[in-house]
Protein backbone atom coordinates (compact mmCIF):
# COMPACT_ATOMS: atom_id res chain seq x y z
CA UNK A 1 0.00 0.00 0.00
CA UNK A 2 1.41 3.35 -1.00
CA UNK A 3 0.84 6.52 0.92
CA UNK A 4 1.20 10.02 -0.42
CA UNK A 5 4.65 11.17 0.58
CA UNK A 6 4.89 14.24 2.71
CA UNK A 7 7.23 16.96 1.47
CA UNK A 8 10.52 17.06 3.28
CA UNK A 9 10.78 19.27 6.38
CA UNK A 10 13.58 21.20 4.73
CA UNK A 11 11.46 22.23 1.76
CA UNK A 12 8.53 23.01 3.97
CA UNK A 13 10.71 25.19 6.20
CA UNK A 14 12.10 27.14 3.25
CA UNK A 15 8.63 27.71 1.90
CA UNK A 16 7.41 28.99 5.24
CA UNK A 17 10.49 31.14 5.72
CA UNK A 18 10.04 32.87 2.40
CA UNK A 19 6.38 33.37 3.12
CA UNK A 20 7.31 34.99 6.41
CA UNK A 21 9.88 37.24 4.73
CA UNK A 22 7.38 38.32 2.10
CA UNK A 23 4.77 39.20 4.72
CA UNK A 24 7.43 40.95 6.76
CA UNK A 25 8.63 43.07 3.87
CA UNK A 26 5.06 44.06 3.14
CA UNK A 27 4.67 45.16 6.74
CA UNK A 28 7.98 47.05 6.63
CA UNK A 29 6.84 48.87 3.52
CA UNK A 30 3.41 49.70 4.80
CA UNK A 31 4.57 51.27 8.05
CA UNK A 32 6.42 54.33 6.70
CA UNK A 33 4.04 54.79 3.78
CA UNK A 34 0.99 54.77 6.01
CA UNK A 35 2.86 56.90 8.55
CA UNK A 36 3.48 59.55 5.89
CA UNK A 37 -0.15 59.63 4.82
CA UNK A 38 -1.44 59.58 8.36
CA UNK A 39 0.80 62.43 9.48
CA UNK A 40 -0.11 64.51 6.47
CA UNK A 41 -3.80 64.06 7.15
CA UNK A 42 -3.57 64.55 10.90
CA UNK A 43 -1.25 67.56 10.84
CA UNK A 44 -2.69 68.98 7.63
CA UNK A 45 -6.25 69.19 8.91
CA UNK A 46 -5.16 71.67 11.60
CA UNK A 47 -4.87 74.46 9.04
CA UNK A 48 -6.90 73.00 6.18
CA UNK A 49 -9.60 75.65 6.42
CA UNK A 50 -11.34 78.25 4.32
CA UNK A 51 -8.76 80.91 5.08
CA UNK A 52 -6.00 78.61 3.93
CA UNK A 53 -7.71 77.95 0.62
CA UNK A 54 -8.72 81.55 -0.07
CA UNK A 55 -5.85 83.70 1.22
CA UNK A 56 -2.27 84.27 0.21
CA UNK A 57 0.75 84.82 2.45
CA UNK A 58 0.88 88.52 1.75
CA UNK A 59 1.45 90.65 4.87
CA UNK A 60 1.77 87.58 7.04
CA UNK A 61 4.68 88.17 9.39
CA UNK A 62 7.37 85.63 10.14
CA UNK A 63 5.71 84.33 13.28
CA UNK A 64 2.08 85.11 12.46
CA UNK A 65 -0.54 82.45 12.29
CA UNK A 66 -3.13 82.49 9.50
CA UNK A 67 -2.35 83.04 5.87
CA UNK A 68 -2.94 80.52 3.17
CA UNK A 69 -1.91 78.89 -0.05
CA UNK A 70 -4.40 80.44 -2.45
CA UNK A 71 -1.61 82.09 -4.44
CA UNK A 72 0.23 78.78 -4.62
CA UNK A 73 -2.84 76.78 -5.65
CA UNK A 74 -3.65 79.24 -8.42
CA UNK A 75 -0.02 79.14 -9.55
CA UNK A 76 0.14 75.35 -9.60
CA UNK A 77 -3.08 75.02 -11.56
CA UNK A 78 -1.93 77.55 -14.16
CA UNK A 79 1.54 76.08 -14.45
CA UNK A 80 0.28 72.53 -14.81
CA UNK A 81 -2.36 73.59 -17.32
CA UNK A 82 0.23 75.43 -19.43
CA UNK A 83 2.64 72.52 -19.21
CA UNK A 84 -0.11 70.18 -20.44
CA UNK A 85 -1.06 72.51 -23.27
CA UNK A 86 2.58 72.48 -24.40
CA UNK A 87 3.51 68.87 -23.89
CA UNK A 88 0.36 66.90 -24.72
CA UNK A 89 0.14 67.87 -28.42
CA UNK A 90 3.88 67.45 -28.94
CA UNK A 91 3.98 64.18 -27.03
CA UNK A 92 0.93 62.78 -28.78
CA UNK A 93 2.14 63.76 -32.25
CA UNK A 94 5.54 62.25 -31.52
CA UNK A 95 3.90 59.00 -30.44
CA UNK A 96 1.85 59.03 -33.64
CA UNK A 97 5.01 59.52 -35.64
CA UNK A 98 6.76 56.66 -33.85
CA UNK A 99 3.88 54.21 -34.25
CA UNK A 100 2.20 55.19 -37.50
CA UNK A 101 4.77 56.86 -39.70
CA UNK A 102 8.30 56.22 -38.56
CA UNK A 103 8.33 52.45 -37.94
CA UNK A 104 11.87 51.25 -38.44
CA UNK A 105 13.37 54.45 -39.81
CA UNK A 106 16.61 55.81 -38.41
CA UNK A 107 14.88 59.00 -37.27
CA UNK A 108 12.29 57.09 -35.26
CA UNK A 109 14.99 55.00 -33.62
CA UNK A 110 16.85 58.18 -32.68
CA UNK A 111 13.70 59.79 -31.29
CA UNK A 112 12.82 56.65 -29.38
CA UNK A 113 16.29 56.52 -27.84
CA UNK A 114 16.24 60.14 -26.77
CA UNK A 115 12.74 59.86 -25.36
CA UNK A 116 14.20 57.17 -23.11
CA UNK A 117 17.06 59.49 -22.19
CA UNK A 118 14.60 62.30 -21.51
CA UNK A 119 12.55 60.05 -19.22
CA UNK A 120 15.58 59.82 -16.96
CA UNK A 121 16.28 63.56 -16.73
CA UNK A 122 16.29 64.54 -13.05
CA UNK A 123 13.61 67.15 -12.44
CA UNK A 124 16.14 69.63 -11.09
CA UNK A 125 18.06 69.42 -14.37
CA UNK A 126 15.00 70.36 -16.39
CA UNK A 127 14.68 73.39 -14.13
CA UNK A 128 18.35 74.23 -14.67
CA UNK A 129 17.88 73.97 -18.43
CA UNK A 130 14.99 76.43 -18.48
CA UNK A 131 16.97 78.67 -16.15
CA UNK A 132 19.96 78.57 -18.49
CA UNK A 133 18.00 78.86 -21.73
CA UNK A 134 14.91 80.92 -20.99
CA UNK A 135 16.07 83.15 -18.16
CA UNK A 136 19.85 83.53 -18.48
CA UNK A 137 20.32 83.35 -22.28
CA UNK A 138 17.03 84.74 -23.59
CA UNK A 139 16.71 87.15 -20.68
CA UNK A 140 13.11 86.49 -19.64
CA UNK A 141 12.26 86.88 -15.98
CA UNK A 142 11.14 84.25 -13.50
CA UNK A 143 7.52 83.42 -14.25
CA UNK A 144 4.87 80.78 -14.03
CA UNK A 145 5.35 80.18 -17.73
CA UNK A 146 9.04 79.40 -17.25
CA UNK A 147 7.97 76.87 -14.63
CA UNK A 148 5.46 75.40 -17.08
CA UNK A 149 8.25 75.01 -19.64
CA UNK A 150 10.36 73.09 -17.14
CA UNK A 151 7.41 70.89 -16.19
CA UNK A 152 6.58 70.21 -19.82
CA UNK A 153 10.09 68.86 -20.37
CA UNK A 154 9.37 66.33 -17.66
CA UNK A 155 5.91 65.60 -19.04
CA UNK A 156 6.70 65.11 -22.70
CA UNK A 157 8.55 61.78 -22.53
CA UNK A 158 5.90 60.34 -20.20
CA UNK A 159 3.15 61.35 -22.59
CA UNK A 160 5.07 59.95 -25.58
CA UNK A 161 5.68 56.61 -23.89
CA UNK A 162 2.16 56.08 -22.60
CA UNK A 163 0.53 57.23 -25.85
CA UNK A 164 2.90 55.05 -27.86
CA UNK A 165 1.99 52.04 -25.76
CA UNK A 166 -1.71 52.69 -26.27
CA UNK A 167 -1.40 53.23 -30.02
CA UNK A 168 0.48 49.95 -30.33
CA UNK A 169 -2.43 48.21 -28.62
CA UNK A 170 -4.82 49.22 -31.41
CA UNK A 171 -5.17 46.09 -33.57
CA UNK A 172 -3.76 46.43 -37.05
CA UNK A 173 -7.01 44.91 -38.34
CA UNK A 174 -8.76 48.19 -37.66
CA UNK A 175 -6.23 50.23 -39.59
CA UNK A 176 -6.49 47.82 -42.53
CA UNK A 177 -10.27 47.87 -42.41
CA UNK A 178 -10.16 51.63 -42.66
CA UNK A 179 -7.56 51.68 -45.47
CA UNK A 180 -9.65 49.13 -47.36
CA UNK A 181 -12.55 51.59 -47.27
CA UNK A 182 -10.35 54.06 -49.10
CA UNK A 183 -9.81 56.23 -46.04
CA UNK A 184 -6.51 58.15 -46.14
CA UNK A 185 -3.96 57.37 -43.47
CA UNK A 186 -4.28 60.62 -41.52
CA UNK A 187 -8.05 60.25 -41.27
CA UNK A 188 -7.62 56.64 -40.26
CA UNK A 189 -5.38 57.85 -37.45
CA UNK A 190 -7.62 60.68 -36.31
CA UNK A 191 -10.98 58.92 -36.70
CA UNK A 192 -10.24 55.27 -36.00
CA UNK A 193 -6.92 54.81 -34.19
CA UNK A 194 -7.11 57.74 -31.77
CA UNK A 195 -10.74 57.20 -30.70
CA UNK A 196 -9.99 53.52 -30.10
CA UNK A 197 -7.05 54.34 -27.84
CA UNK A 198 -8.62 57.46 -26.34
CA UNK A 199 -9.20 56.23 -22.81
CA UNK A 200 -5.73 54.76 -22.51
CA UNK A 201 -4.07 57.93 -23.73
CA UNK A 202 -6.23 60.10 -21.48
CA UNK A 203 -5.30 57.94 -18.49
CA UNK A 204 -1.61 58.27 -19.36
CA UNK A 205 -1.90 62.04 -19.72
CA UNK A 206 -3.67 62.39 -16.39
CA UNK A 207 -1.00 60.34 -14.65
CA UNK A 208 1.69 62.49 -16.27
CA UNK A 209 -0.09 65.63 -15.07
CA UNK A 210 -0.38 64.18 -11.58
CA UNK A 211 3.33 63.47 -11.58
CA UNK A 212 4.46 66.95 -12.57
CA UNK A 213 1.91 68.66 -10.33
CA UNK A 214 3.98 67.58 -7.34
CA UNK A 215 7.37 68.60 -8.74
CA UNK A 216 9.19 71.18 -6.66
CA UNK A 217 12.75 71.45 -7.88
CA UNK A 218 12.06 72.74 -11.41
CA UNK A 219 9.75 75.42 -10.00
CA UNK A 220 12.35 76.51 -7.47
CA UNK A 221 14.69 77.47 -10.30
CA UNK A 222 12.14 78.98 -12.68
CA UNK A 223 9.16 80.60 -10.92
CA UNK A 224 10.98 81.70 -7.77
CA UNK A 225 9.07 82.58 -4.60
CA UNK A 226 6.36 85.05 -3.85
CA UNK A 227 3.92 85.51 -1.01
CA UNK A 228 1.42 87.38 -3.16
CA UNK A 229 -1.24 86.35 -5.62
CA UNK A 230 -0.04 86.56 -9.20
CA UNK A 231 -2.63 85.29 -11.63
CA UNK A 232 -0.57 86.16 -14.70
CA UNK A 233 1.74 83.24 -15.41
CA UNK A 234 3.62 85.24 -18.03
CA UNK A 235 5.09 87.94 -15.85
CA UNK A 236 6.83 87.99 -12.54
CA UNK A 237 7.44 85.35 -9.89
CA UNK A 238 4.55 83.05 -9.14
CA UNK A 239 4.09 80.52 -6.37
CA UNK A 240 3.46 76.84 -6.76
CA UNK A 241 1.95 74.54 -4.18
CA UNK A 242 4.96 72.19 -3.85
CA UNK A 243 7.16 75.25 -3.54
CA UNK A 244 4.86 76.63 -0.85
CA UNK A 245 5.28 73.44 1.17
CA UNK A 246 9.06 73.59 0.77
CA UNK A 247 9.18 77.27 1.66
CA UNK A 248 7.04 76.87 4.78
CA UNK A 249 8.93 73.76 5.86
CA UNK A 250 12.22 75.67 5.93
CA UNK A 251 10.77 78.38 8.17
CA UNK A 252 11.43 77.76 11.84
CA UNK A 253 8.03 78.55 13.39
CA UNK A 254 5.25 76.13 14.28
CA UNK A 255 2.66 78.18 12.42
CA UNK A 256 4.73 77.83 9.23
CA UNK A 257 5.08 74.08 9.77
CA UNK A 258 1.30 73.85 10.18
CA UNK A 259 0.88 75.65 6.87
CA UNK A 260 3.38 73.27 5.28
CA UNK A 261 1.32 70.27 6.41
CA UNK A 262 -1.89 71.82 5.16
CA UNK A 263 -0.15 72.56 1.86
CA UNK A 264 1.05 68.97 1.65
CA UNK A 265 -2.49 67.75 2.30
CA UNK A 266 -3.86 70.01 -0.43
CA UNK A 267 -1.17 68.84 -2.83
CA UNK A 268 -1.85 65.18 -2.11
CA UNK A 269 -5.57 65.76 -2.58
CA UNK A 270 -4.96 67.39 -5.97
CA UNK A 271 -2.64 64.60 -7.07
CA UNK A 272 -5.02 61.90 -5.83
CA UNK A 273 -7.95 63.55 -7.59
CA UNK A 274 -5.98 63.59 -10.84
CA UNK A 275 -5.11 59.91 -10.34
CA UNK A 276 -8.69 59.07 -9.57
CA UNK A 277 -9.84 60.94 -12.66
CA UNK A 278 -7.32 58.95 -14.71
CA UNK A 279 -8.68 55.64 -13.41
CA UNK A 280 -12.25 56.77 -13.97
CA UNK A 281 -11.54 57.70 -17.57
CA UNK A 282 -9.87 54.34 -18.11
CA UNK A 283 -12.77 52.48 -16.58
CA UNK A 284 -15.53 54.55 -18.09
CA UNK A 285 -14.40 54.61 -21.70
CA UNK A 286 -12.75 51.23 -21.87
CA UNK A 287 -13.32 49.95 -25.43
CA UNK A 288 -13.90 46.46 -24.05
CA UNK A 289 -17.25 47.70 -22.81
CA UNK A 290 -18.08 48.87 -26.30
CA UNK A 291 -18.62 52.45 -25.22
Amino acid sequence: MTTIQRISPNRRFKDRLVQFLVYLSFAIAVVPLVAVLWMVIKNGLARFDLEFLTHSMRNIGATDAGGGAYHAIVGTLEQVLLASVISVPIGLLTAIYLVEYGQGTRLSRAISFFVDVMTGIPSVVSGLFILAFWILVLGFSFSGFAGALALSILMMPTVVRSAEEMLLLVPNDLREASYALGVPKWRTITKVVLPTSFSGIATGVMLAIARVAGETAPLLLTVFFTDSINTDPFSGPQMGLPLFVFDQATRPTDTAIDRAWAGALTLILIVMLLNLAARLIGWWRSPAKGR
Partner: peptide, 25 residues
Protein backbone atom coordinates in the same frame (compact mmCIF):
# COMPACT_ATOMS: atom_id res chain seq x y z
CA UNK B 1 2.52 63.69 -41.44
CA UNK B 2 4.80 66.73 -41.26
CA UNK B 3 3.28 67.80 -37.96
CA UNK B 4 3.94 64.45 -36.32
CA UNK B 5 7.43 64.13 -37.79
CA UNK B 6 8.09 67.72 -36.75
CA UNK B 7 7.01 66.99 -33.18
CA UNK B 8 9.46 64.09 -33.05
CA UNK B 9 12.29 66.22 -34.39
CA UNK B 10 11.36 68.95 -31.91
CA UNK B 11 11.98 66.49 -29.08
CA UNK B 12 15.44 65.79 -30.48
CA UNK B 13 16.09 69.53 -30.65
CA UNK B 14 15.07 69.94 -27.00
CA UNK B 15 17.44 67.19 -25.96
CA UNK B 16 20.26 68.82 -27.88
CA UNK B 17 19.34 72.20 -26.42
CA UNK B 18 19.43 70.84 -22.88
CA UNK B 19 22.99 69.67 -23.42
CA UNK B 20 24.09 72.82 -25.24
CA UNK B 21 22.64 75.42 -22.90
CA UNK B 22 23.79 73.68 -19.75
CA UNK B 23 27.32 73.64 -21.17
CA UNK B 24 27.11 77.23 -22.39
CA UNK B 25 26.07 78.48 -18.96
Amino acid sequence: RYASTGAGIFLLVIMAAIGVFLVVE
